[in-house]
Simulated scan of single mutants.
Amino acid sequence: MKAILYVGHGTRSKKGAAEAKQFLQSVIEQTHGSIQEISFLELTHPFIEEGFELCIKKGATEITVVPLFLLAAGHIKNDIPEALTPLIEKYPNVQVKVADPFGVQHQILDAIAELVKEKAGELNGQEAILIVGRGSSDPVIHEAFAMIGKGLEQRLGIKHSRLCYLAATTPTFQEGIESITQETKDRVIVIPYLLFGGLLLNEINAEVKSRQKNGYQILHTDCLSRHQVIRNIVIARATGKEDEYATTRY
């Protein structure tokens, strides 16, 4: 019997965890499968082992693991495989397939452009965008964000963009937002490249509000899971229709 195990990152924020679970529940309701379980890599229960064991108890002989991660950083390359290895060894007769992370997809960039236009209204091309990533020391992530920045510039007709990160690498979020607000005479649009709300999005929101009070023309878009395309991509991963959402296209 086939099963689907969704794996989110996890968060210390109760609101963020509830948001992620609510999102996944909506995916489950739209995905035909008798065994579907939710799990998280860290910080939020149930963890991967708990979700995997629930799939087994319900009779799973094939498990498709669907990571809810935007890019292939250390969690995808190391942490999730490390969590799954003892489970695969424990249940050698169970086939386990791990779906790819989302990657840089033109559908996601189109969705972000829509979120920007919904928030900012009509653009004049003089605005600047600040793309904020979670952060990773992996150079592949930096290459991906360069593609994301270029793709959004093209879609929005904006010439000035910057990238920054909330942890693990530079430029930091504080460095990025300070630089772009000083350089830009028009509006600054901050784009959190995050799937769900939580402490990281709260940090961005607090900084943006602080600068708004100081007279800066600055705003930020919401987390990416607010757009239907993200839900569609997760469903495609879960049902084995990944080819409908090809990566590295922007």
Results as ranks from 00 to 15, higher is better:
N78P: 00
V98L: 14
L200V: 14
I76E: 09
K77A: 08
P101V: 02
A128C: 08
F102N: 04
E175D: 14
H142F: 10
T172C: 03
I158R: 04
E114F: 02
D186G: 03
L87Q: 06
L199T: 15
P86A: 11
K77H: 07
T170V: 15
A99L: 10
P81E: 04
E143M: 03
T172R: 01
G125A: 11
R162H: 12
I131R: 02
L70V: 10
S161V: 08
L123R: 12
G151S: 06
Q95L: 03
I189S: 14
F145K: 00
S136A: 11
S161I: 05
G135R: 02
G157W: 02
L68H: 07
A146N: 10
G198P: 08
I112E: 05
E82L: 12
P171K: 08
V96R: 06
A128V: 06
L199A: 12
R134V: 04
M147T: 10
S136H: 05
N124Y: 07
D79T: 12
V188T: 15
I158S: 07
Q174C: 00
P171D: 06
I177P: 10
G133H: 05
A72F: 08
K77M: 11
R187I: 09
H142A: 11
A111R: 09
L200Q: 12
L195H: 10
I141P: 00
I141K: 03
L163K: 04
F173P: 06
E153P: 00
A146T: 13
Q95A: 11
E178D: 15
P171M: 11
I129G: 09
L194M: 06
P192N: 01
A72I: 01
E175F: 00
N78K: 13
Q154R: 10
L156T: 03
P67H: 08
Q105G: 05
E114M: 00
V140P: 00
E183V: 13
L109A: 03
E89S: 09
